[in-house]
Design a protein around this nucleic acid. Sequence first.
DNA 1: CGCATTTGACCAGCGC
DNA 2: GCGCTGGTCAAATGCG
Length: 291
Amino acid sequence: MGSSAWVDTTLDLNINPFHLRNKALRTKSEGEMADSDVKLPFKQENADLVEELNRIKAENKKLTEMLTALGHCYNDLQNKFMELVTINSDNEVSTSKKRKAECEDYSPNMIGFSNGNKETSCSDEDSCKMPRECIKTTISRTYVRTNPSDNSLIVRDGYQWRKYGQKVTKDNPSPRAYFKCSFAPSCPVKRKVQRSAEDPSVLVATYEGVHNHAHPSPSEVAILSPKCSAKPVSCASGSITGWDGAKKKTQEVDDAPAAIQQVLVQHMAASLTRNPNFTAALAAAISGRVI
DNA sequence: CGCATTTGACCAGCGC
DNA sequence: GCGCTGGTCAAATGCG
């Protein structure tokens, strides 16, 4: 799976979800100013607003139900997956040092090229549910769209990496670069970066292990790697998904009042569930793990 | 001069 | 056992 499931899950995540409404009102009022003869009666406008509010409420409710159903489906599939993994781990007595990746958790992720970073989906919370074989080395994959003319193997994820090797592999004409996390001396995380055989404009970054240090802050990254962090967007041309942006935006509004956050969450959920590509990709990803 | 990158050599697992 | 392959090491090189 992975590269075959490209989906544009870009979200329309406006910090101010009311801006459309305000804009509509503004244009309406502008229209009224331009044509002052045609004035809607205040009562009529009020009724329109109430009607639209009700319509939006109904839509919200519907989307929330869809999201809930989606969540249930996901949980169900995940439970089945865990059962299968448990059965498989019982059968596998030992795994060799190499080629052990097959049993490990590949967590494909698609990110844009930006400085947005992606935490492995097999986080500590998840790994506690995983069989022991799969806890030892957490593996995740990230797909990064880059400028086709840019042939560097640089994936900027906020961490500091030191390249220690490069190899041409059999199944892919483009070389594979090997990186170690150099942000913390004892950090065991390794990263392999290789261009996708199917789409050379896509970099496939495979992460092994879990960082034993906090994610470096932008200022730390700037100190450690000024040339990398200074222009985080300079090396590529397009984003595959807006998930990082979504994450970033949700972080940015951490201080916002709870009501606004709730509206934002609803807005995000609505954007996700409204996108048939996202649901299809989610289903494909989950079924891919089960099979 | 110190650090990161490059690159050929080496090592270990796997299949035949 | 041998060859193939992927992964790592470490000396050489480049750069600021």
